[in-house]
């Protein structure tokens, strides 16, 4: 019993670690998509931010400057996306695909030219990373059954970005549902014409939503390269941007649902790693691939309308043309 509980704590801790980049990225997508801009480019923004964070942290030795560079990168890519899809009224999907390609190619190209390790960045010292923070009394509470491991193994001992990710969810909720800006973002994603009639600039509003998106993507990238691991590795986002996109759809574009969905997808990821090669008596080896594919399958089933209905923001994907 005791060991099963310890196992569970370990899996939950892994779940938290794996879901943090999803939470940041899905929230990033939430700002963009609620304002009516589809964002397939989340993957690329996360990847490029991870590269910037690791590069700057390597050169300066400061994780905070790395985070700053990552945020800058995320915002810049968002502005490219905005220029193409808001100002030039281009196809938002195509623009997102382009950003993914550019990030994938440019990170390896620059990494190879600057550090000469085939696209990797050098290993970061612990002082240049966001390392685990032990919360007060973790050691004292640890011996208490159940509560002890829960506090010292799961709640304490995470890095600062993990706590920020969990704070970003209520914060996003507050911004979206309790501020004027949030109300307008939601309105512009549903009916930009009405927002325009009220004398509010659709263009500027959508740009601001995309900047929020870029900032959060920057956090996600930093987490990958400077907190979770200690260097940038080529293609290290490995499809997480797409899982986050799936999570956003699965969460029906709502912040609190995003948290739960990302934890679920993170848990599936943690479970598939944990169960690799495990044999269940009578059933054979656990089909790990099925567990890995489950987030995508669940999202498709939801999209098909078989479990609830995911209704995207009405004006999503359509460039706004002002009436003349």
């Amino acid at each position: 019993m005791e060991s099963l509980f310890a196992d569970l704590i370990q899996i939950f801790a892994a779940t938290v670690r794996l879901s943090v980049p999803l939470i940041f990225t899905a929230l990033a997508g939430l700002y963009a998509e609620r304002s009516g801009i589809f964002d397939i480019g989340l993957e690329g923004k996360m990847l490029f931010s991870a590269f910037s964070a690791a590069s700057v942290a390597t050169v300066t030795g400061s994780p905070w400057l790395g985070l700053f560079a990552a945020i800058l990168t995320g915002v810049l890519l968002s502005l490219v996306h905005g220029f193409a899809s808001i100002t030039q009224r281009g196809n938002q999907i195509i623009s997102g695909v382009a950003i993914n390609f550019i990030a994938s190619g440019l990170t390896i190209l620059l990494g190879n030219a600057w550090f000469g390790q085939g696209g990797r960045t050098p290993q970061l010292a612990n002082s240049a990373r966001f390392t685990e923070i032990t919360l007060p009394f973790a050691a004292e509470i640890a011996p208490i059954p159940f509560l002890g491991p829960l506090y010292s193994g799961l709640i304490s001992g995470q890095n600062i970005l993990v706590y920020l990710a969990f704070l970003a969810v209520p914060f996003t909720w507050w911004v979206l549902y309790r501020t004027r800006f949030g109300l307008r973002v939601r309105a512009v994603g549903e009916n930009p014409g009405a927002v325009d009639t009220a004398g509010i600039s659709v263009t500027w509003l959508r740009y601001r939503a995309l900047i929020c998106c870029g900032i959060l993507a920057g956090f996600a990238g930093t987490y990958l390269s400077v907190a979770q691991s200690a260097s940038f590795i080529r293609e290290m986002s490995a499809g997480k941007g797409y899982i986050a996109l799936a999570a956003l759809v699965f969460a029906k574009w709502k912040p609190l649902n995003v948290l739960l969905t990302c934890l679920l997808f993170g848990f599936l990821d943690a479970a598939s790693i944990r169960l690799q090669g495990t044999i269940i008596p009578g059933m054979g080896e656990v089909p790990v691939q099925l567990i890995q594919a489950l987030p995508y399958i669940l999202t498709v089933v939801l999209l098909a309308g078989f479990i609830g209905k995911a209704i995207p923001p009405k004006a999503g994907g359509v460039p706004y043309v002002k009436e003349r």
Binding site: G90, N91, A98, L106, I108, G118, G119
Partner: peptide
């Protein structure tokens, strides 16, 4: 590195597409 072609693809998609 060889990945320069991925960058070129991305830019082609950006300029010829979006």
């Amino acid at each position: 590195s060889r990945e320069v072609i991925i960058l070129i693809q991305g830019l082609v998609i950006l300029f010829a597409g979006a």
